[in-house]
Amino acid sequence: METLEQTLARAAVAAPGAQLSVVKNDSPCAQHSLLVDVEHAYAVAKFLRDDPQLRLDYCSNVTGVDFLDAELSEKVKVKKVVDGVEKEVEEVKKTKRAGYLEAVYHLYSMALKHGPVILRQRTPGRADPVKVTSLTPLWRSCEFQEREVFDLYGVLFDGHPDLRRILMWDGFKDYPMRKDYAEPDDYEYEPTPHDEVLEKAKAHLPKAEVKA
């Protein structure tokens, strides 16, 4: 199987105008992924599916990932003049990163038995509406999984035929898998000390008992 860079180069030709980049993965398994902009996701995915060398006919896994606003710190080597001598000093450079939501697709080929090629779509921010392109018209297997990502993360999939809540009930308002989700407060006091649960339950402890 060709490398991800080669796939990227060919996909860029097949879907002109697509902004593609490789997201590096530092873990030992080195499953790097292909980041594609929302507008061209359908064209790139179609190329990946239909290209005779790749033939990624099987979309195994669709996932949402939530990244909060974060402050990234990276160590940068800077040349500085200290006491008249030029030295290389390590400085911590801090950058702010706006939060975003991701939809991740794991693609395999059943015909050629290779994979995975990982495709990512990123939303510009976390505020509503967060939209990405649905790949359900290409792979039917995305249907329920994209619904699940919508249900739990609140990502809207453009072009999905039946986008509604799948796991929670219809009147539910929150997106529970988001990192800043505040869960309902239904912890009554129970005499089973259990770290976090106990902390939550303590708020419901009758007043007299708190003193004791």
Binding site: G171, F172, K173, P184
Partner: peptide, 11 residues
């Protein structure tokens, strides 16, 4: 009943 965030009532 199904509420917006939780069951109503919760107990």
């Amino acid at each position: 009943l199904f509420g917006e965030h939780d069951l109503v009532p919760s107990k």
